[in-house]
Amino acid sequence: MTAPPTDLETMALAGRERAVFTRPPGLRGVELLSATFVSHRYLPHAHDTVALALIERGAERYRYRGAQVRAGVGEVATVLPGEMHTGEAVTPDGWSYRVLYLHPDWLVGADGRPLAGFRNDVLADAALSRALRRAHRALLSADATTLARETVLHGVIDHLSVHADHRIGRELPRVPEAVWSVKARLDATPEAAVSLSDLAAGVGLSASHLSRSFTQSVGAPPHAYQMAARVRLARALLDSGESVAGAALRAGFADQSHLTRVFRRVVGLTPGVYQRSL
């Protein structure tokens, strides 16, 4: 029998699935996830951070930047801020990984230039993988000082610099003005009940035209984007100390159970476990 979970340990989700979310003390804009997933499938969502996921077992695939991407053992899957993506197992055995989420302010190379993107979405670099694993463990260690944590973290960034792509062409395609307006509206008030017809009328498009354009430009249909935005709002409310039930109500979910189901599909763990980990 395993020991009772501590603040930094996992809650069993279902069968062999488990996940641990952590924010290392003293490091703003740094978050960690250690997880094993089998049947879990992420809903389309985006992060405000750069996600660096080291695959420790199995393989993961995810829809990203208009393509299906696959990452296997020892490889580092990357996701840039604001990029809609999914995530699921490649085989019935699932996958295990360590994820490091970094605010873009951390991603500055030795030459002083920001690491706005990478030449490949999945990085096969043994030195980077070792550095990421070492950093992940140090950031979770209660014995590590802030200086030690920052040192290993910058070691990861130094290895990432090798894969930096500073070409302007790596930026997202220009989002049509109407889609940008709808996206901004959903970001500003994700909790609001709104129909596709209402959104389309607000930008002078037909509902079908807006749905196609939004999905093509953003990487997810409007309703899926709204749900991910509601999870972001709920997460901010939980960070501020709001109860799970209160966060569900204020973020526009039908009830606490609804929030719990969707939150897990986006974050990888339930809102209760997420809040306790803080």
Rank of each mutant, 00 (worst) to 15 (best):
Thr6Cys: 10
Asp7Phe: 09
Asp7Met: 13
Met11Phe: 11
Ala14Glu: 14
Val20Pro: 02
Thr22Cys: 07
Arg23Leu: 13
Glu31Trp: 06
Leu33Phe: 00
Ala35Gln: 14
Phe37Asn: 02
Ser39Asp: 13
His45Ile: 15
His45Thr: 15
Ala46Leu: 15
Ala46Gly: 12
Val50Gly: 15
Ala53Asn: 10
Ala59Leu: 13
Glu60Cys: 05
Arg63Asn: 03
Val73Asp: 05
Gly74Arg: 05
Gly74Ser: 03
Val76Asn: 03
Thr78Phe: 10
Val79Gly: 04
Pro81Glu: 08
Pro81Asp: 09
Glu88Lys: 15
Thr91Gly: 08
Pro92Arg: 07
Gly94Cys: 10
Trp95Cys: 05
Arg98Tyr: 01
Val99Pro: 01
Leu100Trp: 00
Trp106Arg: 04
Leu107Tyr: 04
Ala110His: 10
Arg119Leu: 05
Val122Gln: 01
Ala126Gly: 10
Ala126Trp: 07
Ala131Met: 10
Leu132Phe: 06
Arg134Gln: 09
Ala142Pro: 09
Ala144Gly: 10
Thr145Phe: 03
Thr145Leu: 04
Thr145Ile: 12
Arg149Ser: 00
Asp165Tyr: 04
His166Met: 11
Glu171Met: 05
Val182Gln: 04
Lys183Pro: 05
Arg185Gly: 12
Leu186Tyr: 03
Leu186Cys: 02
Leu196Gln: 02
Leu199Ser: 02
Ala200Lys: 01
Ser206Leu: 14
Arg212Val: 14
Gln216Pro: 02
Ser217Leu: 04
Pro222Met: 08
Tyr225Asn: 00
Gln226Arg: 08
Gln226Val: 04
Arg232Asn: 12
Ala234Met: 04
Ala236Tyr: 03
Leu237Tyr: 02
Gly246Phe: 01
Phe253Pro: 03
Asp255His: 14
Arg261Met: 14
Val262Cys: 12
Arg265Phe: 09
Gln275Glu: 11
Ser277Ala: 13
